[in-house]
Nucleic acid binder design. Structure first.
Lengths: 188, 188
DNA sequence: TACCTGGATGACAGTCACTGACATCGGTGC
DNA sequence: GCACCGATGTCAGTGACTGTCATCCAGGTA
């Protein structure tokens, strides 16, 4: 049971999700997570900034994928369409781990602190998207609005995907959600 | 210096904002806030759920105003337009306390925990708006999307108002922001 | 006036997230 | 073998937040 078991970070994340599912986020102490991973509390905080962050380590990677996808879209594509295409692409990354996503999401939904953290991650996505659009020459209120509205559309799509049957894949629901957004914002 | 000085809650909120401005949110302890208000730490937590909440007590009132405005909009009005009109109305409530809003916002902007709390308040607004729209007979993906997109437009407008000159009033910027939203989501 | 009751506050002890400082271990390169 | 360095352990501390019980003040009632 040595100090040098590999992948400490991964073990901590796994132990945390397990415990959050088993007995709930609030009822789990960081010391317990560390113990299950064969480490100490102090080491947990060297790998994750706080008790919430352990559930969100993948968010940054997705953010980069999003930015790359928008940056790589054809110049002729309108901002909102570039954002939509980016989210469709990213949607594919979720398909594999639907079961894991479900677990994670039920834990997050059950706790306000975790929902807060999720929202700030989405805001971070939005800020990155807006920045990427600006680099494509989109002016400022438009860039922010396309990014915010795009994240909103994805949020709605993700909720539908996670709470519905596995049937339609996320990318397809994302596409529908953006179409709905366009219809709705057309006003009367 | 009695136990029964009136308006304990208000004194706590005032002391908190002052201290957050003077020395920063993280550098302020709840004990210090309570002391300045002539109360104890325990009493602080009887009035506010946590150290952040003291900055957001007005949010619920605004949420109700929003819901009322949407509920009272003419039936003929499209969802996104009803939401836009509601935010324009609410915008007026901010005008009076622009100075206070500025202070508050600079404190929030400087701290990630506070930004998280603000985001969940906005999400709460969005959920309430979506619910109000559903009561008006708007179907589900559309209701959520109109609410989310509306909050996004308001967020962008508020940022522009707070960081720009006092010149154009918030309601006007809100109107412009919704127009921009419509233009942007029209795609190409 | 004296008493009683209820809600607001104080006092105090405890848990737990999170941090700083320093010691220790184990692999790597020489 | 030996020096070095990064990852981990140990320990002591701070501060947010909670449960519990005592205490105080206001108002009503006899």
């Amino acid at each position: 049971m040595g100090r040098w078991e590999p992948n400490a970070r991964g073990r901590l994340a796994k132990a945390a999700l397990e415990l959050y599912v088993e007995r709930g986020y609030e009822q789990t102490t960081v010391a317990e997570i560390a113990k299950r991973a064969g480490l100490t509390e102090r080491t947990f905080f060297r790998h994750f900034a706080d008790k919430r962050e352990v559930l969100f380590s993948g968010s940054d990677e997705l953010r980069e994928h999003l930015a790359d996808a928008v940056a790589g879209a054809p110049d002729s594509m309108a901002p909102i369409d570039a954002v939509a295409a980016a989210f469709e692409k990213v949607g594919v990354l979720f398909e594999e781990g639907r079961e894991r996503s479900l677990q994670r999401q039920s834990v997050i939904a059950a706790n306000a602190e975790l929902r807060e953290r999720e929202l700030i991650k989405l805001a971070w996505w939005s800020a990155t998207l807006a920045d990427t659009l600006r680099r494509r020459g989109v002016a400022d209120p438009a860039a922010s609005l396309a990014a915010e509205a795009g994240v909103a559309a994805f949020k709605v799509a993700f909720e539908r995907w996670i709470s519905g049957p596995a049937e339609p894949d996320l990318s397809q629901i994302v596409r529908e959600s953006f179409d709905e957004l366009k219809a709705v914002t057309a006003g009367r």
